[in-house]
Design a protein around this nucleic acid. Structure first.
Lengths: 133, 133
DNA sequence: GATAACCTTCCAGTTAAAGGAAGTTTTACC
DNA sequence: GGTAAAACTTCCTTTAACTGGAAGGTTATC
């Protein structure tokens, strides 16, 4: 099938599909006119990539997952390791963001937000006041 | 002062400081030999930028905050608006990541992670199984 | 034969810097 | 005065994962 059809089947933009071919994630056949010709397996792979990416796996992770997916003999522990590592990164990111959120909430709450120019947020950013108070 | 000194005073790498000059966030004076010459106000501004960035404000946010910071007459509500918007983005990001975490945790838990090739994670990514179960 | 829809490649831009090359200036030391 | 090291300069490239657009070829329809 053409790239447009593969796009509809996989849910990925054509731009993204071409990019994935560029970096070697898929290798669709070519017709004599130069058009890409996607098999069902190709679009299946694209959908796999789409789902993996939407779960936040990096392209590098996706490459690994895809090769594991295509290796009928791999141990499930290999896959689990990739996912567990990703999970840890996510957990860490959440922790960071929550700390940020806590700090910002404090600042925003303390700012009266009216027409007066005095602002605790800027005071804090400028280093003139400690946040701890 | 020289860029090295400004770097130590502000906590930003010299590369970052030059970059910030490039994009117009600071405009240090120049000596006759071409070296940048930072005033205390410049380094103060750099430190302001460092703190803002470390709170996750984008460069564009920083540009706004900096101009608000330098405008002695601005209303604190203007600043609060920028911070509140940022806070909302952070909250949203946290929500997204927590949803991801939930999904991934489910997958990882369900994968037995041994030497057998069958793996619920890949099954899910391939679209062959619903996660809901 | 014209037009639209689809396809192709290639180049530039996005974020926020970091890394490195090549060359100049200043500083330190003998 | 010589020289070596440190600090400075500009410019170019790379990162992640695409997205947008230009310029042009192909196919289907009217």
């Amino acid at each position: 099938m053409h790239i447009g059809e593969a796009s509809r089947a996989s849910g990925l933009p054509t731009k993204t599909i071409r990019y994935y071919e560029d970096i070697g994630l898929v290798r669709p056949a070519r017709r004599t006119n130069g058009y890409r010709d996607f098999s069902d397996q190709d679009t299946h792979k694209l959908a796999f990539l789409g789902r993996s990416r939407s779960l936040g796996f990096s392209i590098d992770d996706c490459r690994t997952l895809l090769s594991l997916y295509e290796d009928r003999d791999r141990a499930s522990s290999d896959v689990k390791a990739v996912a567990a590592e990703h999970l840890e990164r996510i957990t860490q990111k959440i922790d960071e963001l929550q700390a940020l959120k806590f700090t910002l909430e404090k600042l925003v709450t303390r700012c009266h937000g009216d027409n007066r120019p005095d602002c605790p947020i800027l005071n804090d950013l400028s280093g003139r006041a400690a946040l701890s108070a």
